[in-house]
Amino acid sequence: MVLLTLMAAVTIGIVRARNLFAVVVLSGIYSFLMASVMIVLDAVDVAMTEASVGAGMSMVLMLGVLYLTKVEEAVPSHTPWLPLFVAVGTAAVLLYGTVGLPPFGAAENIVHAHVAPRYLEQSIAETTVPNVVTSVLASYRGFDTLGETVVIFTAGFAVLLLLRGRRRSRPSDDA
């Protein structure tokens, strides 16, 4: 609960900060806090991925882009009232939606009913992998993971295509 509150505070910092360097560092802090929350929520694999990908890789990429562009953000010319109204409206609808959701952490919640127990019970017999997250990722839902790698391949390809033209003119740096 404390971690979640801290995360909200960091988010306010991200919204308010005008220096993009500060924004990127704050988003790194945010990612580490998110990883800690994930550990509390028992999602250890996800926490490791978030700490390395969210805090590490994303920050490196963003800092690279900041190096190539500008660090200061301009003051927006239009008033923030319309987006604020949209945001608050969305929040109100979503908050109304949470009233009907089941309480946090109860074992009889409906999410724990269908395939999850089967994965937990059969994982050892069918895949011999004790880490259920791994066995689901690589075995039961292997096609999902294949699709994921296709997405990453496509993204890497797109980045290469986008940045290829500029490398000839300025060969020194790369995002």
Binding site: T49, G54, L61, V111, L137, D144, E148, I152, A155, R166
Partner: peptide, 28 residues
């Protein structure tokens, strides 16, 4: 705990990085 959301979110994190990289390349 339920392993299924963990698996889905692992995929989401990595795909998120991929889209972020493409976005940043566009920004450049």
């Amino acid at each position: 705990s339920n392993p299924l959301p963990h698996v889905l979110m692992l995929t989401a994190i990595v795909v998120g990085l991929a889209t972020l990289a493409v976005g940043l390349a566009l920004v450049v």
